[in-house]
């Protein structure tokens, strides 16, 4: 499985889908992101790791403007993120996001959760949207739960639904913010398996995670963040075997015991 996921590595197209240049962000006085430069190629898969509070979530949340940056530029699929709300909405339709706590809509059934975006944002007819929803539910192996409400599902199932919900919008990029860290250990694998499938199909992915096994087998690049900066980035093999910076070494020694 892992071999297949990495097999596509060589075929990275070299047109960028995300370009972040000289980006800074402050929360009040607190300089949370400092001079971020990052280019993501189409079909590229990046794992972001780093200590708690280092700004990982903030970084990927800037990419779909859940957080606003104050300096520098972020261009997603040719659209620069500014205050223009139309542009922001356009970027959001192209960028899927999966949250730590799933954030499914509890008042809607699973299939309604999935169909909501396509119906209202992409203006897809309801019937067609529900068919697409069922297709993706099959894909994350949860179709039999379609008529249930999120509250009736386990954490792992909810997270798979959340991934399927994003996929229904046919996004060009998927962002994952610690998708498995709110899950009980026995459910982590079912979610990672879905993500590995997605990787195999060539989805562009930015994943904040501490699942180093996933990083090794799926990522093209691993970024290490600390104190709001990208301290180091490298291929998974190099990153884990020969970390350059002391902070990276310290971090790795703490999470890989």
């Amino acid at each position: 499985m892992n071999d297949k996921a990495t097999a596509a590595d060589n075929q990275l197209s070299d047109d960028a889908i995300i370009e972040i240049k000289g980006m800074h962000k402050w929360f009040g006085e607190f300089h949370v992101l400092q001079d971020i430069n990052l280019t993501v190629q189409k079909r590229e898969r990046i794992v972001i790791c780093g200590p708690s509070g280092s700004g990982k979530s903030t970084l990927i949340r800037c990419i779909n403007r859940l957080e606003e940056h104050q300096r520098g530029s972020i261009v997603v699929d040719g659209i620069e993120l500014t205050n223009d709300i139309k542009n922001i909405e356009k970027v959001r339709t192209e960028v899927g996001m999966v949250f730590q706590h799933f954030n499914l809509f509890p008042h809607l059934t699973i299939v309604e959760n999935l169909a909501l975006g396509p119906i209202w944002v992409r203006k897809v007819p309801k019937k067609e949207a529900e068919e697409t929803a069922m297709y993706y539910l099959e894909k994350v192996q949860i179709a039999e739960q379609a008529q249930k409400f999120p509250g009736q599902l386990s954490g792992g199932q909810q997270q798979r639904v959340a991934i399927a919900r994003s996929l229904c919008m046919a996004p060009k990029v998927m962002l994952f913010d610690e998708p498995t860290s709110a899950l009980d250990p026995e459910m982590i694998k079912e979610v990672l398996d879905v993500m590995i499938d997605l990787a195999r199909e060539g989805m562009t992915m930015l994943v904040v995670t501490h699942e180093m096994g996933f990083a090794k087998s799926v990522a093209h690049r691993v970024l290490f963040m600390d104190y709001g900066q990208i301290v180091e980035q490298n291929t998974p093999d190099e990153f884990f075997d020969n970390p350059e910076h002391d902070r990276t070494k310290l971090f790795l020694s703490q999470i890989l015991h």
Binding site: I85, R92, G96, L104, V121
Partner: peptide, 16 residues
Amino acid sequence: TGQFEAAESLGLNYYQ
């Protein structure tokens, strides 16, 4: 806030 964020990240506008 997760509910707002999930809705927004699907591209729904404020009214939706």
